[in-house]
Write a protein that binds this DNA or RNA. Structure first.
Lengths: 146, 146
DNA sequence: CGATATGCTCAGGTTACCTGAGTGATTATT
DNA sequence: AATAATCACTCAGGTAACCTGAGCATATCG
């Protein structure tokens, strides 16, 4: 008879649960934004979530999204092709360009905001006001405990 | 003066927070498992998290991890090369092979378990027993509300 | 003014998935 | 029992979302 190792297993895996919950929400967000007619993917939220109304430099976008300028540039390229963004020269620095939202980009951003607002409402229904506040507080604590 | 769009913004973005928290925990897990001397990546958890002690078929591993057999096969290849797994013929079906953990694989699995146990303990310190239980319950609810 | 730093782009690589097209082995059908 | 259909797996090739390294133009600093 074969020796079977005796494992000390964790009771639960919170990180795994976190992943499942995130995947579920991301599906809903992507579905919502796509339903508004925008051909954008989850990765593009790194742009929409970090861009300022007055425009933002590539390096700053990359920094905020914690990725390389090269990777961010690809995402921006996509969205320029889709008509959501344009690159204009930065008047304060000849080397730099400002990434700015087009009119379509602003519409898409508002649609994304609306989707998120809807999800927050759903979550409040699911968890209750107190439950949702507690969840956010817990997530904050985990994220910030470096 | 330039027209500045008036946005209706969400008060908070729970999905974003979820992403931040997950990223933080994943850094800790990877660091922990690597510190035990194993050259494994996050994707390999799809194998370690779904394999049975007595061995598991590729198709079943793929199903449990919700990915294609081809993708799972690549992960298995990696871990076979690393000495963590072997493929043996399935005695009950000539078409199939069983993926089984080697001794080293069992050690790695236990090390991963220990890392997760440590994280759960940290989380309990951070959030309190009740807080952690509530967090898991909320995450379950979000993940399962298809 | 020259050295160094900064912002960006071009080229190419990696990881983690995917689809599609096989090859054998097994099971079902006639 | 022969043939068809199915199943487990592999091979080839593609894509998305990142990465590193190198190079070029513009700024800044001593």
């Amino acid at each position: 008879m074969s020796t079977r190792p005796q494992f000390r297993e964790p009771e639960e895996n919170t990180a795994y649960l976190l992943g499942q919950a995130l995947a579920a929400l991301q599906r809903v967000i992507t579905r919502g934004v796509n339903a508004s007619g925008h051909d954008v993917r989850a990765a593009h939220s790194a742009v929409f979530g970090n861009i300022d109304h007055e425009g933002t430099r590539l390096t700053q976008l990359a920094e905020r999204a914690r990725m390389t300028p090269q990777a961010m540039s690809e995402l921006v390229d996509d969205l320029v092709t889709g008509g959501y963004l344009t690159r204009i020269p930065d008047p304060t620095d000849g080397r730099a360009k400002l990434i700015v939202l087009t009119d379509l980009g602003n519409v898409a951003l508002q649609d994304a905001f609306d989707t998120i607002i809807g999800i927050e409402a759903e979550l409040e229904t699911l968890l209750g006001r107190t439950g949702l506040l507690r969840l956010r507080k817990a997530l904050h604590a985990i994220a910030e405990r470096e």
